[in-house]
Structures are given as C-alpha cells and as structure tokens.
Design a protein around this nucleic acid. Structure first.
Lengths: 194, 194
DNA sequence: CGAAAATTTGACATGACTCAACTGGAGTGG
DNA sequence: CCACTCCAGTTGAGTCATGTCAAATTTTCG
C-alpha cells in the first residue's frame, strides 16, 4: 500500500509543497476491508472519509420495503464516505459496503479538520472535487428523467466501461433504478438487435 | 438591493473580518432580471455565479424530444449557476430562467477566483455549501428511485412548503419527473382521500 | 461435485404517459 | 365591462414501459 495515487490525484487540482506533502503523509492511515465488509452502516455516524487505492464499493439506501437502491459505486482514485453523515457527524442515511477486497487511505473527521487548518489549500482541493461530483449527480438526475431504462444502461456502459465486469448485474440494475429482471430483458434485447 | 442577506448567509459558515467584508463588498455586482428572462442559456458559457436576494429561478435541460426537465429551483438565499459550465468555463448543459422578477448578486469567474486568493476562507465557505448541496442531490436520486410519483410530490410539498404557490404546477411536475397531467391526477386523488 | 447465488424467461399487473377534448382564470383591447 | 384569447390545469380513454412473481437455467465457488 502506498500513497502515490492519492498524491497524484491531489496534484491534479492543487500543488502541495514538500512540507505540506510530508504533513499530509504523516496523517495517513491505511485500511483494508474484505469483500462484503461494511465501511459504514445506515444509522452509524460516518467518522472517516476514504480514498480508494484498490477495490470497489457501493453506497446504498434500504427503503421502507427493504429494497436496496445504489446511489454510487466507488473504485480506485475515488472517495468513499456518507458525506451527509460525515460533515454533520450525525447518523448515516446509507450503507457503504465493499464489492471487492478494498484498500483505502482513511482520514478521520478530526484529521481532515486539522488538515484544513494546517493546509488551507486542501479546502480548494475538496471544493473542486465536490463541485465535479455535483455536476455528475445533476446529469444523472436528468438522465433518469429523460432517458429510457435501455438508454440509461447504454450510457452507463459508455461512461464506466471498466466497471461493468467487476459488478454483479443486479447491482447495476439497482444503480440504474430498474429491477434485475428488466435489465436482463434489456440485455437480451440488445443482443437480438445486432 | 443590499448585501446583508449574503453576508448573513456567509457568516453562518465562516467569520469574515471587517477588511475581508469590505473587500468582498467592493466586488459585488447587483443584477436584476425580469420574469421569463434567461440568466444562462444552454450552449453559452456560464460566466457568473449568482446569489439570489429576491425572486425565483429554474434550471432545466431540454432533451432530444424538446422536453423540458427541471433540475432545480433556486430562491432567496440560494445560488444560481450552471456549475458544470462555470467551473470549467465551457458551454452550459442547462438553461437558467427566471420564474419571477429576480434580483441577485453576481460574481464573475475572475472575481471569484480573485476572491479565493485574497480571502482563502471563502474556499472553506464554498466547500461547505457544495458539500451540503451534494447531500441534497443524493437524496433526490434515492427518492426518485424508491418513491412513487405521489410520494415524491408529498415530499416536495413538505420540503418546500413555501415554494409551491410561487411555481406553476407544470414546472413542479417537471421537477418531479412526471407529466403535468399525471400530477393533476395525483392532486385530485389526494383531495378525494381526505 | 453440489449448494447457493445470479441470471434468464414468461405470464400477467400496473403506474405513468400520450393525446385530445374540455374548463376556467387572467389579461387585453374595444 | 364585456368578448376574446391564451395559458394553466383537468379529465378520460387507450397504450406502453417497467414491475411482480414464480419457475427454469446458468454461474460461482467452497
């Protein structure tokens, strides 16, 4: 496990000095989770923000009927946390569970708050990545309204070509907001078409 | 027009010194738009981020079939911009149009970038509000998947009790991702129920 | 190899959409 | 102050995309 991917990622948005890099590295905590392990559970307070160096997670919500709705997947070079819970330090709305064995770099709430004070530039970094993420969520909302299930699936495949093979189909269906049966029908229809 | 609401809003998240407040105020540009006027048009670059002091706007997307899909409404004490376009300074995906006569405080891309350098604390302020905003978008995605149209409408009424009377019903339908006819049927059904 | 999990398939049900006609206010102009 | 138009909202009939449930099949993995 090493922090190179995180540093590379941060340096796409801001430039850290040597001292700042060192300080950041000194706060780093590595953490390994096994497939199916929970990183956060609905109802618990999310105490960490994690940067994935390998593996894959899903964040999902269990509704009143016990059905699971996947809000997002995260893979290498992306963040995991229930942001709502993390920023307010109140109980989480979502579960976060590993789909594969997952390694990540974890920052506790206190560590991050400390780092913001010691390296104010990090505020800029996180602002920028959250901004990007908002743009993606907005697009998703629009797609869910304006596209059919089939079209949404095709967009998903195009946007995340490398993720599809790593994730069971029923989770993709949940992410797309349809049933696993219907996704299966869409796929067989797509095969017939060509 | 005055900047008090903006200052009050900012001070909920960070504390500005007198000098900083003065600097910020010196950059402020007030702007008025009339009902139905566009603040941003799909395809144009969104050059400003605006804080609404009075009025109401909708941000929407026109899909391939010419249908309008409302991504969000903004009212007093909230921001308007096509964030995707603004942060990358590339053409906007969305239209932003006034539903009422609207007054706002506008910051150009250059002004904001300048302010970030002169008042680094503002990075923290914007980080916090974008974090909050992402939480809201995530919740909306989950609601759209796990709730029926009727339930979504009831949630909307509960979350935005004061907005409903200001906005024509067909726009609310678009925001909820349903047709105006169907929302009408939902409402008449709700009346029958009690 | 065998059990459990994931996927597929089919029959049927339904929530939400489409289209078209109708109603009712809110201007506007004579 | 009435007549006219226009836009928002309502209502109903018919349709379609997607869901439900249950059984059959395939894949995964201990």
């Amino acid at each position: 496990m090493n922090a190179a991917p995180l540093l590379a990622y941060i340096n796409k948005y801001i430039s850290l000095t040597e001292d700042e890099t060192e300080l950041l590295l000194s706060k780093i905590v590595y953490r390994k989770y096994l497939k199916n392990q929970y990183i956060v559970q609905q109802g618990d307070v999310c105490r960490h923000e994690g940067f994935i160096t390998s593996g894959c997670t899903k964040m999902f919500y269990i509704d009143a009927n016990g059905q699971e709705h996947i809000v997002m997947f995260s893979i290498e070079d992306w963040w995991v946390s229930d942001m709502g819970s993390f920023i307010t330090q109140t109980p989480a709305d979502y579960h976060i569970q590993c789909i594969e064995n997952t390694e990540l770099i974890q920052f506790s709430y206190e560590t991050i708050e400390g780092l913001y004070l010691e390296i104010p530039k990090l505020e800029r970094f996180f602002r920028k990545i959250v901004e990007r993420s908002i743009v993606a969520f907005q697009k998703r909302i629009v797609r869910n309204f304006s596209l059919s299930a089939k079209e949404r699936y095709l967009v998903f495949k195009k946007n995340y070509p490398n993720i599809e093979q790593r994730i069971p189909q029923y989770m993709i269906a949940s992410y797309l907001g349809i049933t696993k049966e219907f996704l299966s029908k869409i796929k067989s229809q797509l095969i017939l078409e060509q």
